[in-house]
Design a protein around this nucleic acid. Structure first.
Lengths: 298, 298
DNA sequence: GCAATCCATAACATTATGTTATGTAATGTG
DNA sequence: CACATTACATAACATAATGTTATGGATTGC
């Protein structure tokens, strides 16, 4: 048989109150409406649910068995409503984020924690990995979004690019620390810790030096700006890194100064073109982008 | 929000097939009917459930979360339908039967077993006790029905009386075993095992003897006919018991012969006047009465 | 004995869900 | 590349479920 929710509501209210009149009040309809719903329901189930005794209705024992099961139906509907509300208010669900390794231990956790505190029903998978893997996962929709850098584009990916300011970092107490702005000329005699040679950022940086006829003293190539920061904070070399990473090391063995010319390091937030647009994930991306405002390159 | 089952059905069918047209076929309605139900549902929940891609609908991630919970709703409705069917076909439910102690170990278990084999969803509480307790429990609706004897009536109880034939039982090989019918005169020199002196049946039995001027040689008073049967089957005395109990001992150390005058022993099936009339219990009572037909006193 | 209360039913109204018809967009095929 | 086919959305109308008020019968309370 095909149940009608309204009939189940009328049945439950009547069985629990022992009164059609009370049930009508609870359901916000007239008494004859409940009477009709009950009669229709009894016909549909194929047996009596109530007997009339001393003017009022008494549930049959069959009705009592049904009531327990009907209550479970409403329990499951209540769970559905809870989920609906969580989804509508974006306070529930799961999102999978792939990011560069440095992100999993620096700026991102703080942003995520703040985001999640306001959304008790939300859970997250945060997976650090190489840019190639991030791209692969996002394209295959194994992850809802990826946070990477140096992204050159892909037809299956939609992106949000965020140009992050870069700064020159020097060991604390370094003579150049007295200058307000560092130029390539200033670094002519310094050993440079820099990102991968084939990265977009590196090409731009080296170009600055060569355009000005200043030698670029390559010392150590690193994969992550955080590694460069670690070297410099231990008193070795100089580096041009994103202000985001530098901020994590502020007051920890290094100083940061604006670098001229003013380069930006492009972060990219990736989303698959295919697949859906989970509102929750869009909310998170917005929050993440907002958290980067202090580091935005003008 | 207030869910509509039909909308949930349309949603689930569409999410599972990926097609409004397929969902319409599954639900047995036209395609625009499903389209409308989905639109109404999406408006009601407050977020998009499907996106149109390459001409067909793709569930959003919110929809996928909802689908799991909607499936649970339908699971609970399926359980409700199973219960409804069991109750309608009286193949499910629970009944509580109070009976005289002898019944719990004799005729009744066989009848119950046969009744329950055909009704896998039915469970039973079978509680043996004294007639006074049986009456009390049934009146208080702690038990659905009681099987007792010598019941003199009560305003709060409705009853079905079943007169059971009685027979004279003698140890196997007894000289009187050669007779077709036993009379009080035949028992003038026999020790009699009999029921409680204050029971209706005993009064009737003793009256038979005294009316004929035959001495009644009282030997042992017992509470249950089964106890009397046990004594006689071990070669001691004679007794007049219900044919029901005697049948259990047939070929086990005793023989049974009709007793003249023809007395009956009244069993009573009790039901509370108040409370409901569980169809299952009424079915059982009918089956039980039917099982007693071979022992009915004409 | 009458008033109040509870429930069932009738007649009519409203809303949810159904239909057919039609339009738009995307895909497949010759 | 043009046309046929398929999928989905919307309009207009029809049907069924659920709502209303009015009313009657039965029971209870004063």
């Amino acid at each position: 048989m095909k149940f009608q929710l309204r009939q189940l509501e009328a049945f439950r209210a009547t069985a629990e109150t022992g009164s059609v009149t009370q049930a009508a009040k609870i359901l916000g309809v007239s008494q004859p409406a409940v009477s009709r719903l009950l009669a229709d329901f009894s016909t549909a189930v194929g047996f009596d649910l109530f007997v009339r005794k001393q003017g009022t209705l008494t549930p049959t024992s069959e009705a009592r068995y049904m009531l327990a099961e009907v209550s479970r139906v409403f329990d499951s509907l209540n769970h559905l409503e809870d989920l609906r509300r969580d989804l509508k208010e974006r306070t529930g669900g799961h999102m999978r984020i792939a990011c560069l390794p440095g992100f999993a231990t620096s700026h991102l956790p703080g942003v995520l924690a703040e985001f999640l505190v306001e959304r008790p029903g939300v859970t997250v998978t945060l997976e650090p990995d190489r840019p190639e893997r991030i791209l692969e996962w996002v394209m295959g929709e194994q992850y809802d979004c990826g946070i990477t850098d140096g992204f050159s584009g892909h037809p299956a990916i939609e992106r949000v690019d965020i140009p992050i300011r870069t700064v020159c970092i020097l060991p604390e107490g370094h003579a150049l620390g007295r200058k307000e702005v560092i130029t390539p000329e200033d670094l002519a005699d310094e050993k440079i810790v820099h990102s991968r040679r084939n990265s977009t950022f590196f090409v731009q940086l080296e170009s600055c030096f060569s355009q000005r006829g200043v030698p670029f003293n390559s010392w150590i190539e690193v994969r992550q700006f955080t590694a460069a920061c670690t070297f410099v904070s231990q008193g070795h070399g100089a580096s041009i890194v994103s202000a985001l990473d530098a901020a994590q090391f502020e007051g920890k063995g290094l100083v940061a100064r604006p670098f001229e010319p003013d380069l930006s390091h492009d972060l990219s937030i990736l989303r698959p073109i295919t697949g859906t647009r989970p509102l929750l994930v869009l909310d998170f991306i917005e929050a993440f982008v907002e958290s980067l405002q202090p580091f935005i390159h003008q």
